[in-house]
Nucleic acid binder design. Structure first.
Length: 446
RNA sequence: GGCCCUAUCGUCUAAUGGUCAGGACAUUUGCUUUUCAAGCAAGUAAUCCGGGUUCGAUUCCCGGUAGGGUCACCA
């Protein structure tokens, strides 16, 4: 990959709502492309619509980028740059390429004049880095509005001025901007600017194949964080939506992504965001975490009675690591009726649950339980590990039928239809508690 | 509706003017120390349709169809 000189890309969202994965995927493309070329990545808040823009959304954008690990080199806010737009607007008017237009207000109290761009009605053609040549006849656009007044520039004017002033070389954005490009090129030409390269990436689609949108129920990026997804997993999944390195590798480190990325290999069709596959990626990343990092990420979801510092959590950790796809699931497994809440205490269960459905014999179950108890009692508290317990019980279980012995034991220990194996369960609750629960089950069956 | 864009398994995608059209997720089945999950193994599953060009097209061209985007004093 040859290095392009002075690459500058930007992510230019408007803070009018919480942004979703589709928005951040284009940010990711921009970031990666800049990083690959050792260029600059700019965050520009497009808040020229003052009425709809909110600081909280801007904060969320900054927070999301930080979480995803997409640091920007420069930060701008359009509302801080009104003077700049004003001077360019004045230039356009002076040269006769824009004019103040008298309007009849559509609604009462509406504006009576706006600034319109004098459309030369040209055919615009540009080479898109993703989709090739695109041609537009701008005649149909008419003399479009570029500002409400000198101090109230509109989107197209602000974008063109900013991209020029910030020396943006590559405009990487969603394909919903394709038809805006012609207008923006017209303005840039009028101002005598050099044009940036354009790369319009396909949109992310909802499962219903519509554009991913807030209204369509698309979660914000911070919602994924709050549900216990790993940023690296999300980034890995997002970069593969509409792009791939050309081989069959799917798990890609940040370095590999930056090294292998290429605008030309971006897909032209839209891609559906599939949460199932995201979960799979998350599981892959989650399993590679060290125990310390795992505990750190798990912490917000671990119930208070457990705590990540407890010995109990330490024992639970390997189990959790293979059981969950997202950290949010930790809260579920420890919930009442969750798979692992037996660790906290035994919930009432039906005596019949102790009977293995393939051979539901009360007496047999009772006898096996009694024998298992005897074997278990022989293991000292110091050696009460899943491995040791298994070694102790295994020969007996083999001899008398694994299901016959193990099923009742597991239910006695956990009170649940679904749970970890009885050896692990016993180790998890500890020797005293395990014996107590087995005693309880034996009485229960009497 | 005008304009623009797109089209490979259910989903994300790979590949090629000649391949058994490959991989991953999901799904199905089997295996693994009782259950559930995980893991492992195997299986099902795709080139939108119609014309051309060509010895040969999923690949190139045209048309159709379908889907998406956009048509603001929003961005």
């Amino acid at each position: 990959m040859s290095l392009l000189a002075n690459v500058v890309t930007r992510f230019a969202p408007s803070p009018t709502g919480l942004l979703h994965a589709g928005n951040y995927r284009t940010a990711l493309f921009s970031y990666v492309y800049a990083a690959q070329n050792k260029g600059k990545f700019i965050l520009r808040i497009e808040d020229s619509d003052r009425a709809r823009s909110k600081k909280e959304y801007e904060d969320n954008i900054v927070e999301s980028l930080k979480w995803l690990g997409l640091p920007y080199d420069e930060f701008y806010r359009q509302s801080d740059r009104l003077g700049i737009y004003r001077s360019y607007l004045a230039k356009l008017i002076e040269s006769g390429q824009a004019f103040v237009s008298k309007e009849t207000p559509v609604e009462s109290g509406g504006r009576t004049e706006v600034i319109r761009f004098k459309n030369p009605n040209a055919k615009i053609r540009f080479a898109d880095l993703v989709r090739g040549d695109i041609e537009f006849d701008t005649t149909e656009l008419g003399d479009f509005v570029v500002a409400r007044s000198l101090d109230e520039p509109l989107f197209h004017l602000a974008v063109v001025v900013d991209d020029h002033e910030m020396e943006v070389t590559h405009v990487i954005r969603g394909e919903d901007h394709i038809s805006n490009t012609a207008r923006q090129i017209l303005i840039a030409r009028a101002l005598g600017f050099d044009l940036p390269a354009y790369a319009h990436v396909p949109l992310l689609l909802s499962p219903g194949r519509g554009k991913l949108s807030k209204r369509g129920g698309a979660p914000s990026i911070t919602a994924y964080r709050d549900r216990g997804y790993l940023a690296e997993a999300l980034v890995n999944y997002m970069i593969l939506l509409g792009w791939n390195p050309g081989d069959e590798q799917e798990i890609l480190s940040r370095e590999e992504i930056v090294a292998k990325f290429s605008l030309g290999k971006i897909q032209k069709g839209g891609a559906i965001f599939d949460e199932e596959k995201l979960k799979w990626f998350n599981r892959q990343y989650l399993r590679r975490l060290s125990d310390g990092d795992f505990a750190l990420h798990a912490s917000p979801f671990v119930p208070e009675w457990l705590g990540t510092g407890s010995p109990a959590f330490k024992r639970l950790l390997p189990l959790l690591k293979e059981k969950i796809s997202t950290f949010g699931e930790i809260a579920e497994v420890f919930d009442k009726n969750g798979e692992l809440d037996f660790v906290r205490g035994l919930l009432p269960y039906a005596a019949d649950l102790l009977l293995w459905k393939k051979k539901p014999e009360r007496e047999g179950a009772r006898a096996h339980l009694a024998e298992a108890r005897k074997l278990l009692a022989a293991v000292s508290a110091d050696h009460f590990t899943a491995e040791r317990i298994k070694d102790t019980l295994w020969p007996y279980a083999e001899e008398h039928g694994k299901g016959d012995v193990l099923w009742p034991l597991r239910v006695a220990l956990t009170g649940k239809e679904k749970s970890p194996d009885p050896f692990t369960a016993a180790a998890l609750v500890g020797r005293e508690e395990a014996l107590k629960r087995i005693d309880h089950a034996i009485k229960y069956l009497a």
